[in-house]
C-alpha cells in the first residue's frame, strides 16, 4: 500500500506543479473573417489578471512568416511562448534558402500538433488561436483550441466572440465583402463584445493580410453609445423585490 506522502512525492516528481493548472494573464476574444482580397482579424489589447484588467497594450495579433497572421486569446505568456516556437519554425524553414516558404495551412497544422501534443502531456498551452493567411491566391482561416480541436471556416471567433460575434457574422458575412465593409463588420462585432464582455477594453487593433502582405493597424478605439434605455436602467420591465 502506498502511503499518501509517497503518493504525493511521486506526484511532485512528475513535475505536476510545473503544469499550467489555470491561466494568469488572459486576453479575451479574437475575431477573424475572410473577405474579397484576404483575411481580416480583430482583437482588443486588454490583458486580464483574473477580473482585473491588468495590462492595456498587449498585442495579440502577430505576423508569422510571409503569408500568415496569428491572433490569440487566453494565457498571454503561453502565446508569447508559441510565438517563439513559430519564430524558430520560420527561421529553420528560411535556412533551407530554397525559395519555399510555409503558408498559413502549414502553420495552422503545426500549431494543431503543438497544442494537441501538449494536452496529451496534461500540460496544455492555455490559448484559443486563430490563424489566417493568403498564399498562391488561396485564402485560409482556421482555429485551434487549447486541447487541439481545430477547424477551418469563413469566419471564426474565440471565447465570447463565438457567442456574441458569430451570430452577427452568420447573418452579415459575404464572400465578396470589400475591405471597408469587412472592417465595418468587425467593428460592429467588437462593439458588441465591448458592451457585453466585461474583460474587453476599448482599444483594439485590426489586421489585414492579402497576397500583397500584412498590415496591423495602430491601436484605436470605437465610438460607443451608452444611452440606450436598457443600458441606463436595465431593471425596467424586470422589477425584483429590491
Amino acid at each position: 500500500m502506498v502511503s499518501p506522502q509517497t503518493e504525493n512525492s511521486l506526484l511532485q516528481s512528475e513535475g505536476d506543479l510545473q503544469r499550467t493548472q489555470y491561466p494568469y494573464v488572459t486576453g479575451t476574444s479574437v475575431i477573424g473573417i475572410k473577405y474579397k482580397d484576404g483575411i481580416l482579424m480583430a482583437a482588443d489589447m486588454g490583458g486580464s489578471y483574473g477580473s482585473t484588467i491588468r495590462y492595456k497594450s498587449v498585442e495579440r495579433l502577430k505576423q508569422v512568416g510571409k503569408h500568415s497572421l496569428i491572433g490569440a486569446s487566453g494565457e498571454i505568456s503561453d502565446f508569447q511562448e508559441i510565438l517563439h516556437y513559430l519564430d524558430e519554425l520560420i527561421l529553420r524553414d528560411n535556412m533551407w534558402d530554397d525559395g519555399n516558404s510555409l503558408g498559413p495551412k502549414e502553420v495552422h497544422n503545426y500549431l494543431t500538433r503543438v497544442m494537441y501534443n501538449r494536452r496529451n502531456k496534461f500540460d496544455p498551452l492555455w490559448n484559443s488561436l486563430i490563424l489566417g493567411g493568403v498564399k498562391n491566391g488561396q485564402k485560409y482561416l482556421g482555429s485551434v483550441s487549447m486541447i487541439g480541436v481545430h477547424f477551418e471556416d469563413d469566419h471564426v471567433a474565440t471565447g465570447f466572440g463565438n457567442h456574441l460575434a458569430r451570430p452577427i457574422l452568420r447573418e452579415e458575412w459575404r464572400e465578396d465583402l470589400t475591405f471597408e465593409e469587412g472592417v465595418k463588420l468587425l467593428e460592429k462585432c467588437m462593439r458588441n463584445l465591448l458592451y457585453r464582455d466585461r474583460s474587453a477594453v476599448n482599444k483594439l487593433q485590426i489586421a489585414k493580410i492579402t497576397e500583397e502582405g500584412l498590415t496591423i493597424s495602430q491601436p484605436y478605439s470605437l465610438k460607443t453609445f451608452w444611452n440606450f434605455a436598457a443600458f441606463q436602467n436595465p431593471t425596467v420591465g424586470a422589477e425584483g423585490s429590491w
Binding site: 494543431t112 494537441y116 494536452r119 487541439g148 480541436v149 481545430h150 477547424f151
Partner: peptide
C-alpha cells in the same frame, strides 16, 4: 467523440 483525437 473528441475531434482532436479523431483527427490523430
Amino acid at each position: 467523440g473528441f475531434q482532436a483525437d479523431v483527427k490523430a
